[in-house]
Design a protein around this nucleic acid. Structure first.
Length: 257
DNA sequence: CTGCAGGCCCTTA
DNA sequence: TAAGGGCCTGCA
Protein backbone atom coordinates (compact mmCIF):
# COMPACT_ATOMS: atom_id res chain seq x y z
CA UNK A 1 0.00 0.00 0.00
CA UNK A 2 1.14 3.52 -0.80
CA UNK A 3 -0.09 6.51 1.18
CA UNK A 4 0.37 10.01 -0.18
CA UNK A 5 -0.53 13.47 1.00
CA UNK A 6 -1.93 15.64 -1.72
CA UNK A 7 -3.21 19.09 -2.47
CA UNK A 8 -5.58 19.94 -5.31
CA UNK A 9 -6.84 16.38 -5.61
CA UNK A 10 -10.26 15.11 -4.66
CA UNK A 11 -11.19 11.65 -5.88
CA UNK A 12 -14.93 12.25 -5.52
CA UNK A 13 -14.76 15.35 -7.69
CA UNK A 14 -12.65 13.62 -10.30
CA UNK A 15 -15.01 10.63 -10.32
CA UNK A 16 -17.89 13.02 -11.04
CA UNK A 17 -15.99 15.18 -13.50
CA UNK A 18 -16.94 13.25 -16.61
CA UNK A 19 -13.38 12.93 -17.87
CA UNK A 20 -13.11 9.29 -16.83
CA UNK A 21 -15.69 6.53 -16.89
CA UNK A 22 -14.17 3.67 -14.90
CA UNK A 23 -14.18 4.89 -11.31
CA UNK A 24 -16.22 2.20 -9.58
CA UNK A 25 -17.39 3.26 -6.09
CA UNK A 26 -16.64 0.69 -3.39
CA UNK A 27 -17.90 2.62 -0.40
CA UNK A 28 -17.60 6.08 0.99
CA UNK A 29 -14.44 7.76 -0.28
CA UNK A 30 -13.25 4.53 -1.84
CA UNK A 31 -13.02 3.48 -5.49
CA UNK A 32 -11.79 0.77 -7.79
CA UNK A 33 -10.06 2.79 -10.46
CA UNK A 34 -9.29 1.28 -13.84
CA UNK A 35 -7.17 2.68 -16.63
CA UNK A 36 -6.00 0.71 -19.64
CA UNK A 37 -4.90 -2.68 -18.32
CA UNK A 38 -4.29 -1.39 -14.79
CA UNK A 39 -6.57 -1.30 -11.76
CA UNK A 40 -6.13 -0.06 -8.22
CA UNK A 41 -8.20 0.52 -5.12
CA UNK A 42 -7.92 3.96 -3.64
CA UNK A 43 -9.23 5.49 -0.44
CA UNK A 44 -9.21 9.18 0.42
CA UNK A 45 -9.46 10.76 3.83
CA UNK A 46 -8.90 14.48 3.73
CA UNK A 47 -5.56 15.09 2.09
CA UNK A 48 -4.42 11.50 2.51
CA UNK A 49 -4.95 8.96 -0.22
CA UNK A 50 -4.12 5.27 0.12
CA UNK A 51 -3.42 3.23 -2.99
CA UNK A 52 -3.61 -0.53 -2.68
CA UNK A 53 -0.70 -1.36 -4.94
CA UNK A 54 3.06 -1.67 -4.79
CA UNK A 55 5.29 1.36 -4.67
CA UNK A 56 6.75 0.36 -8.01
CA UNK A 57 3.31 0.30 -9.66
CA UNK A 58 2.34 3.55 -8.01
CA UNK A 59 5.43 5.28 -9.31
CA UNK A 60 5.22 3.89 -12.82
CA UNK A 61 1.45 4.11 -13.33
CA UNK A 62 -0.69 6.06 -10.88
CA UNK A 63 1.59 8.94 -10.10
CA UNK A 64 1.54 9.80 -13.76
CA UNK A 65 -2.19 9.05 -14.14
CA UNK A 66 -3.09 11.57 -11.46
CA UNK A 67 -0.74 14.17 -12.92
CA UNK A 68 0.98 14.55 -9.55
CA UNK A 69 3.97 16.43 -10.89
CA UNK A 70 1.87 19.26 -12.27
CA UNK A 71 1.39 22.46 -10.28
CA UNK A 72 -2.29 23.38 -10.03
CA UNK A 73 -1.58 26.08 -7.44
CA UNK A 74 -0.13 28.33 -10.10
CA UNK A 75 -3.22 28.01 -12.28
CA UNK A 76 -5.51 28.80 -9.38
CA UNK A 77 -3.42 31.77 -8.41
CA UNK A 78 -3.44 33.06 -12.01
CA UNK A 79 -7.22 32.73 -12.16
CA UNK A 80 -7.74 34.53 -8.86
CA UNK A 81 -5.44 37.34 -9.97
CA UNK A 82 -7.21 37.68 -13.31
CA UNK A 83 -10.32 39.11 -11.68
CA UNK A 84 -12.66 36.68 -13.43
CA UNK A 85 -15.19 36.05 -10.67
CA UNK A 86 -16.99 33.21 -12.39
CA UNK A 87 -13.77 31.29 -12.91
CA UNK A 88 -12.71 32.02 -9.34
CA UNK A 89 -15.97 30.56 -8.08
CA UNK A 90 -15.52 27.56 -10.38
CA UNK A 91 -12.03 26.94 -9.01
CA UNK A 92 -13.21 27.21 -5.41
CA UNK A 93 -15.98 24.75 -6.16
CA UNK A 94 -13.88 22.22 -8.09
CA UNK A 95 -10.73 22.67 -6.02
CA UNK A 96 -9.78 18.98 -6.28
CA UNK A 97 -10.06 18.55 -10.04
CA UNK A 98 -7.06 17.51 -12.09
CA UNK A 99 -6.50 16.45 -15.65
CA UNK A 100 -6.00 12.70 -15.61
CA UNK A 101 -3.35 11.33 -17.94
CA UNK A 102 -5.34 8.43 -19.29
CA UNK A 103 -4.60 5.51 -21.53
CA UNK A 104 -4.72 6.83 -25.09
CA UNK A 105 -6.68 4.03 -26.70
CA UNK A 106 -9.22 3.93 -23.89
CA UNK A 107 -9.64 7.69 -24.18
CA UNK A 108 -10.25 7.49 -27.92
CA UNK A 109 -12.91 4.79 -27.64
CA UNK A 110 -14.55 6.34 -24.57
CA UNK A 111 -14.98 9.79 -26.10
CA UNK A 112 -16.27 8.43 -29.39
CA UNK A 113 -18.90 6.70 -27.27
CA UNK A 114 -19.57 9.93 -25.36
CA UNK A 115 -21.03 11.81 -28.32
CA UNK A 116 -24.76 12.56 -28.18
CA UNK A 117 -24.85 10.58 -24.97
CA UNK A 118 -25.13 11.15 -21.23
CA UNK A 119 -22.62 10.26 -18.56
CA UNK A 120 -24.67 7.51 -16.94
CA UNK A 121 -25.11 5.76 -20.22
CA UNK A 122 -21.48 6.27 -21.23
CA UNK A 123 -20.35 4.60 -18.00
CA UNK A 124 -22.78 1.71 -18.39
CA UNK A 125 -21.89 1.20 -22.03
CA UNK A 126 -18.16 1.11 -21.29
CA UNK A 127 -18.80 -1.22 -18.37
CA UNK A 128 -20.71 -3.64 -20.61
CA UNK A 129 -18.01 -3.37 -23.25
CA UNK A 130 -15.34 -4.36 -20.74
CA UNK A 131 -17.53 -7.15 -19.49
CA UNK A 132 -17.92 -8.84 -22.87
CA UNK A 133 -14.26 -8.30 -23.69
CA UNK A 134 -12.94 -9.33 -20.27
CA UNK A 135 -11.05 -6.05 -20.02
CA UNK A 136 -11.00 -2.74 -21.79
CA UNK A 137 -10.83 -4.06 -25.36
CA UNK A 138 -7.80 -3.50 -27.55
CA UNK A 139 -8.21 -2.51 -31.19
CA UNK A 140 -7.45 -6.11 -32.11
CA UNK A 141 -10.22 -7.39 -29.85
CA UNK A 142 -12.70 -4.91 -31.26
CA UNK A 143 -11.88 -5.98 -34.80
CA UNK A 144 -12.23 -9.64 -33.91
CA UNK A 145 -15.37 -9.34 -31.82
CA UNK A 146 -18.52 -10.52 -33.61
CA UNK A 147 -20.81 -7.62 -34.52
CA UNK A 148 -23.70 -9.29 -32.73
CA UNK A 149 -21.71 -9.28 -29.51
CA UNK A 150 -20.72 -5.66 -29.94
CA UNK A 151 -24.31 -4.71 -30.67
CA UNK A 152 -25.40 -6.14 -27.34
CA UNK A 153 -23.21 -3.52 -25.67
CA UNK A 154 -25.52 -0.72 -26.83
CA UNK A 155 -23.06 1.47 -28.70
CA UNK A 156 -25.77 2.45 -31.16
CA UNK A 157 -24.60 4.22 -34.31
CA UNK A 158 -21.16 4.73 -32.72
CA UNK A 159 -20.43 1.06 -33.32
CA UNK A 160 -19.45 1.74 -36.92
CA UNK A 161 -17.08 4.48 -35.87
CA UNK A 162 -15.38 2.28 -33.29
CA UNK A 163 -15.10 -0.62 -35.71
CA UNK A 164 -13.59 1.61 -38.34
CA UNK A 165 -11.09 3.28 -36.01
CA UNK A 166 -10.09 -0.11 -34.58
CA UNK A 167 -9.47 -1.46 -38.07
CA UNK A 168 -7.36 1.55 -38.94
CA UNK A 169 -5.26 1.08 -35.81
CA UNK A 170 -4.85 -2.60 -36.65
CA UNK A 171 -3.73 -2.00 -40.23
CA UNK A 172 -1.52 0.86 -39.00
CA UNK A 173 -3.12 3.53 -41.19
CA UNK A 174 -3.98 5.25 -37.92
CA UNK A 175 -0.78 5.12 -35.87
CA UNK A 176 -1.13 5.85 -32.17
CA UNK A 177 2.61 6.04 -31.61
CA UNK A 178 2.86 8.65 -34.32
CA UNK A 179 -0.04 10.48 -32.69
CA UNK A 180 1.83 10.52 -29.38
CA UNK A 181 4.74 12.42 -30.92
CA UNK A 182 2.61 15.15 -32.49
CA UNK A 183 2.08 18.69 -31.30
CA UNK A 184 -1.42 19.87 -30.46
CA UNK A 185 -2.46 21.13 -33.89
CA UNK A 186 -1.17 18.11 -35.78
CA UNK A 187 -2.71 15.74 -33.25
CA UNK A 188 -6.15 17.34 -33.66
CA UNK A 189 -5.92 17.16 -37.44
CA UNK A 190 -4.74 13.56 -37.36
CA UNK A 191 -7.49 12.54 -34.95
CA UNK A 192 -10.12 14.17 -37.14
CA UNK A 193 -9.14 12.00 -40.11
CA UNK A 194 -11.08 9.26 -38.31
CA UNK A 195 -14.82 8.96 -38.89
CA UNK A 196 -16.60 9.63 -35.63
CA UNK A 197 -13.97 12.03 -34.30
CA UNK A 198 -14.89 15.68 -34.70
CA UNK A 199 -13.53 18.80 -33.10
CA UNK A 200 -14.96 18.27 -29.63
CA UNK A 201 -13.99 14.62 -29.29
CA UNK A 202 -10.53 15.30 -30.74
CA UNK A 203 -9.95 17.96 -28.10
CA UNK A 204 -11.04 15.62 -25.32
CA UNK A 205 -8.64 12.97 -26.58
CA UNK A 206 -5.84 15.52 -26.85
CA UNK A 207 -6.50 16.71 -23.30
CA UNK A 208 -7.07 13.45 -21.45
CA UNK A 209 -5.18 10.98 -23.64
CA UNK A 210 -2.25 13.04 -24.89
CA UNK A 211 -1.95 15.49 -22.00
CA UNK A 212 -2.22 18.55 -24.21
CA UNK A 213 -3.30 21.00 -21.55
CA UNK A 214 -3.88 23.72 -24.12
CA UNK A 215 -6.76 21.69 -25.61
CA UNK A 216 -10.13 23.31 -24.93
CA UNK A 217 -13.07 21.01 -25.71
CA UNK A 218 -16.24 23.02 -26.29
CA UNK A 219 -19.33 20.96 -25.57
CA UNK A 220 -22.90 21.97 -24.87
CA UNK A 221 -22.11 22.71 -21.21
CA UNK A 222 -19.19 24.97 -21.99
CA UNK A 223 -21.32 26.67 -24.64
CA UNK A 224 -23.96 27.36 -22.01
CA UNK A 225 -21.34 28.87 -19.71
CA UNK A 226 -19.97 31.06 -22.48
CA UNK A 227 -23.47 32.21 -23.44
CA UNK A 228 -24.73 32.87 -19.92
CA UNK A 229 -21.57 34.23 -18.32
CA UNK A 230 -19.55 35.77 -21.12
CA UNK A 231 -22.16 37.06 -23.56
CA UNK A 232 -21.38 34.41 -26.15
CA UNK A 233 -17.67 35.14 -26.38
CA UNK A 234 -14.95 33.84 -24.11
CA UNK A 235 -11.30 34.70 -24.55
CA UNK A 236 -9.17 31.79 -23.41
CA UNK A 237 -5.85 33.34 -24.46
CA UNK A 238 -4.87 34.56 -20.95
CA UNK A 239 -5.06 30.92 -19.86
CA UNK A 240 -4.13 29.33 -23.18
CA UNK A 241 -1.26 27.29 -21.73
CA UNK A 242 -3.66 25.33 -19.50
CA UNK A 243 -6.98 25.98 -21.22
CA UNK A 244 -8.08 22.39 -20.63
CA UNK A 245 -7.77 22.77 -16.87
CA UNK A 246 -9.92 25.89 -17.03
CA UNK A 247 -12.41 23.91 -19.12
CA UNK A 248 -12.65 21.29 -16.38
CA UNK A 249 -13.38 23.87 -13.70
CA UNK A 250 -16.05 25.50 -15.87
CA UNK A 251 -17.63 22.22 -16.87
CA UNK A 252 -17.73 20.80 -13.35
CA UNK A 253 -19.10 23.99 -11.82
CA UNK A 254 -21.81 24.33 -14.48
CA UNK A 255 -22.95 20.73 -14.12
CA UNK A 256 -22.58 20.20 -10.39
CA UNK A 257 -22.47 23.64 -8.87
C1' DC B 1 -44.28 6.21 -22.71
C1' DT B 2 -41.78 10.13 -24.77
C1' DG B 3 -37.89 12.74 -25.42
C1' DC B 4 -33.40 13.50 -24.49
C1' DA B 5 -28.24 13.07 -24.38
C1' DG B 6 -20.47 15.93 -23.22
C1' DG B 7 -21.58 15.35 -31.63
C1' DC B 8 -20.64 13.87 -36.03
C1' DC B 9 -21.54 13.16 -40.86
C1' DC B 10 -23.58 14.38 -44.98
C1' DT B 11 -26.19 17.29 -47.98
C1' DT B 12 -27.55 22.01 -49.63
C1' DA B 13 -27.15 26.65 -50.56
C1' DT C 1 -18.73 28.72 -44.31
C1' DA C 2 -22.95 27.89 -42.49
C1' DA C 3 -27.20 25.68 -41.53
C1' DG C 4 -30.16 21.71 -40.93
C1' DG C 5 -31.70 16.86 -40.66
C1' DG C 6 -30.82 12.13 -39.17
C1' DC C 7 -28.76 8.95 -36.23
C1' DC C 8 -28.82 4.19 -32.02
C1' DT C 9 -30.77 3.41 -27.76
C1' DG C 10 -30.56 3.32 -22.54
C1' DC C 11 -32.19 6.14 -19.13
C1' DA C 12 -34.95 9.69 -16.66
Amino acid sequence: MVVITVCDLDLQQIADSGQCFRFYPLGSNSWLIKSGCYAVEAFQQGREISFYCSEAEFNSVWKNYFDLDYDYQKIKSDIFKSGDLYLAAAVNFGYGLRILRQDLWETIVSFVISQRNNITRIKNTISRLCQVAGQFPSAQQLVDMPVSELKSVGLGYRLEYIKSISQNVRNASFDLNKLRTMNYQNAIEYLKTQKGIGDKVANCIALFGLNKKNAFPIDTWIKRVIDSQYGGQFDITPFAEYAGVVQQYMFFYRRNG
